[in-house]
Amino acid sequence: MSEPQLQSDPPAGQQGLLPKIAIRNFSARFGQSQVLTGINLEVHACERLAIIGPASSGKTTLLRSLNRLNDLNATFAHDGEILLDGQDIYGDSMDVPTLRRRVGMVYAVPIPLPWSIYDNIAYGLRLAGIKGRSEISVRVESSLRNAVLWDEIKDRLRMPAMNLSGGQQQRLCMARVLALEPEVLVLDEPCSGLDPISTAKIEQALAELKDRYSVVLVTNNTKQAARASDRTAFFLMGELVEVGLTGQVFTAPRHERTGQYITGHFG
């Protein structure tokens, strides 16, 4: 299903550049169950790629492969390669903590650590070796601004993060990742449990960040994919069905299944 010629051209102005992430013939399985098969996909610098598809189509596994978080599961095995700026992330020379700082991840459920708002963001910075209090404070503030959360909580940085509302928690989780100034931001259904206003704020944040980061957004909400992405990839049963400019995928999908999914006939 995933022939290479289905790869659409990169957005104008990006041609000739090395893709930020290049997924080459990547397969993944947990124990005996095959989750991803022969994925070929590229993410370009400063583009927003949406990944859509029904449940258990391998979207989350693909995301968690990008920062090697699947390694935490002992039954995980993979074939093929994923290149970040041309370097194989599963290669021996790749330092995994550094990789995870470069590819920051926001999860489907907001998971604040049981500390203050401030410490939640400072934690990653301290891990990255940033010691100065003033620098940490500056980056805490700028990341909260980038995540469109600062104005709501600027007087309550020492408050337990658990006391925030769900939507605020999710934006905190985003700020926590942004503070590390990643090169790629991957979001796994970040709005699945949120109200429309929180969703709008997260999309607003994504729109403001698009010039600086590559964004990979997994979403169950096809409307969100249409609103918040440049290109869209449709996954089904662990395979990439098609990928193209979002407008094209939504208005003139090349594959029947894609059209059926988008119009809500299954999934």
Binding site: L69, L72, P97, G104, Y107, I111, L113, Y123, C173
Partner: peptide, 20 residues
């Protein structure tokens, strides 16, 4: 999930164990 988050933010296993 706390461990996942910590490792996702670039912590090693040991840093995750001690700090989280």
């Amino acid at each position: 999930s706390f461990s996942d988050v910590s490792m996702g933010l670039g912590a090693t296993r040991w840093q995750t164990v001690t700090r989280v």
